[in-house]
Amino acid sequence: MYKIIKKEKLNDTVDLLEIKAPFVARKCEPGQFIMLRVDEDGERIPLTIADYDRDQGTVTIIYQIVGYSTTLLSQKKEGDCVQDFAGPMGSPAELTKKEHKVIGVAGGVGAAPLYPQLKKLAAQGTKVDVIIGGKSAAYVLLADAFAQFCDQVFIATDDGSLGTKGFVTNVLADQIAKETYDECIAIGPLIMMKNVVKITKPAGLPTMVSLNPIMVDGTGMCGGCRVTIDGETKFACVDGPDFDGFKVNFDECMKRQGFYREEEHQCRIGRG
């Protein structure tokens, strides 16, 4: 059992949990993920690591309440335990010091996995900017946390309640026209990452994206997380989850993501 040390509600559908998991905390790196089960017989839910504290032996995850299992998780309180918490899984993101600047693009809960990546780059002495998107002000995550080490924090909301009204891609297009960046790291919904690449590819700005496909074990055993990268099948759980955005077949990812949509619905009804 793994104890919830801290719980914070970031908005009405997003929670932050800090969980005691020394085996994960002592080895994990930005870009890696964990696999969690809320209770006995529970689903294995993959969640990207948002932060970690090696001394305290804790790992922070930020998740959106989207279905049955995340709803169940959201009912847990500080001091409660989750049944299983395994990791770290996946390959760490390759983060090396860059000559100019790196721009991060986060959509919704994508801000969570992006945060440790930009933080590590900044700690190595690379200048970083970030664009955070959300449907409205309440859904813009971690802006203050990013501001601790980012040169510039841009915000875009669908309704204009905070920052620029519109998509992160609008801000991105403006920004790369203005400044010189060595790399873009985009993490968010598949459609956002696809649209980011539509801008960065013609501009020749190398772009890493983080994929979060359906998977069961997270250790390379099920192959459910197959993604096509440059025409070749890869397992997101061991070969990723970060990939060169120029090479990802996003349309296939989007189709595969929706495979269990009906069952998710049935599960919520069937289990109340």
Partner: peptide, 25 residues
């Protein structure tokens, strides 16, 4: 893969879906 199919059914008890939350289609 047979691994995924069997893991969903055996380890995750997918044969009892929706009593257990891991689906198998």
């Amino acid at each position: 893969s047979a691994n995924e199919f069997l893991t969903r059914v055996n380890l995750m008890k997918g044969f009892q879906f929706p009593k257990t939350p891991t689906p198998v289609k």
